[in-house]
């Protein structure tokens, strides 16, 4: 299968009113992009390290994470 070059991530949206602070996105991110904020909600700490694997979005049980790609690459 030909691997498609992944689009660059523009930002990661975290819906803090749905996030329950389970830490799954933080713990499963392969490159430690995410962390807890003061209220134990997920937040983006190192966007530059993001490899756009989308695991955080796919594994969030609250449908609270959205990895948004830059539009025209």
């Amino acid at each position: 299968m030909a691997l498609k070059a992944k689009a660059k991530v523009d930002h990661i949206d975290i819906n803090t009113s749905w996030c329950k602070g389970c830490g799954i996105c933080i713990g499963m991110c392969p490159t430690q992009v995410l962390e807890f904020d003061e209220r134990f909600k997920a937040r983006v700490a190192h966007l530059e390290k993001c490899i756009n694997c989308k695991l955080c979005e796919l594994l969030c049980p609250e449908l609270a994470v959205s990895v948004e790609e830059a539009e025209n690459e």
Binding site: K20, G21, C22, I24, L58, C60, P61, E62, L63
Partner: peptide, 11 residues
């Protein structure tokens, strides 16, 4: 509950 897998299956 926080961390329950049901939401992952639903998504």
């Amino acid at each position: 509950c926080p961390g329950c897998g049901n939401g992952i299956i639903m998504a």
